[in-house]
Design a protein around this nucleic acid. Sequence first.
DNA 1: TCTGGGGTCCTAGGACCC
DNA 2: TCTGGGGTCCTAGGACCC
Length: 418
Amino acid sequence: METLATILHADLDAFYASVEQLLDPNLRGRPIAVGGGVVLAASYEAKAFGVHGGMSGRKARELCPQLLFVGGHFNDYQRLGDAAIAILGDFTPLVERISIDEAFADVAGCTHLFGTPADIAATIRERVRNELGLPISIGVARTKHLAKIASQVAKPDGLVVVDPAHELDFLHDLPVGLMWGVGPVTEARLKERGILTIGQLANTPGHSIERLLGRAAGEKLRSLAWNRDPRRIRTQHRARSAGAQSALGRQPAIEGVFVPAVLQLADRVASRLRAKALAGWTVTVRVRFADMRAVTRSATLEAPVAATIVLAEIATRLVRIALADHPRETVITLVAVCVSHLHKEREIQLDLPLGLPDEKWRPGACQGTARQSADRAMDLIRQRFGRDAVGYATAALDRRRSVPDAFRELAQKDLDES
DNA sequence: TCTGGGGTCCTAGGACCC
DNA sequence: TCTGGGGTCCTAGGACCC
């Protein structure tokens, strides 16, 4: 029995930057970056100078003085990303979207209609180019991992098909950093051991890798290095957590700073949960200090939470605990609020006592019914008139430095359950 | 003049139960 | 009385991905 290469990994090239160049012809052929303080995406002309996503704007300007920063047309990113993924969907329903600009597809069931996987990939690239005006790279292989690596190798604007008969030849000469699960830290650790290529990783004894990286990571990486990747295409995902964070610049670690920030974050998270009829049992906060070290504090509740005020109250207490544990830290640079252990709310629970397990932490002043109907009223108003139409007074303040909501929505994975 | 915002998964230690 | 083991949950931290 022969296994065919039918997995496609499609990845729009320098996506945000390509969209900006599409919308404004004056930007074509020029080094541009989307973002400001942080580069969200860089055009290939900018990448030639070493500019890349995640880099600070200042560093990027140093590397490329003529770099042009352009504003984010977030709605267009969403629209064009959706349209590109929809083209994959014209060939097969087996599409697994990874992010706004990236997806896997399995075309095993449609080759009799549309030709070989390579033909299909070529057609998709052509259609995305002709219909949307965007470059997209595609890797075709027998496994997801290999297809993903192939699309990286194909960039920019290319197509790479990995012949099942020569998979290890293709894989083993490539640098370990291309593997899924190898980031900067792991790459450096492997390098210390003289492991630079995927082939070298494959030929290092398993126990040695596991000692270096831990059991799970070691096993996973060795499997991938030998091209054993059991993952199938998954068209549906279930959210496991929902969170929000806000970089504050440098702010004093005082109530007047973190209380309103936490309220705003709690509002964002809780309204998203309610919109999906979800609630979560565990609340986690993160506080980052001036030196960028971050600490987290969490609590698992007696009942799942989805109400803004309750979440804000618990999160505020956790932030206080985190700060009390680090009395010498007087400056904070980020706060985050996350709710996990999510479950679907069949019907809205109104009067459960919500709070931390410890009795004295219970926010007794909050009555369930009033709280819930206030949230619901606010959700409805926002549905009709937009997010900013109504809010908690302190939370509504100071939205100046915050990232546009449109970008948050892009970054946020759909919370939908199955 | 430090470095955004949304997630997932893993590890390790301790508590607790059987 | 002491000893032992397995399983599960919780918490804190960290690596990684887009």
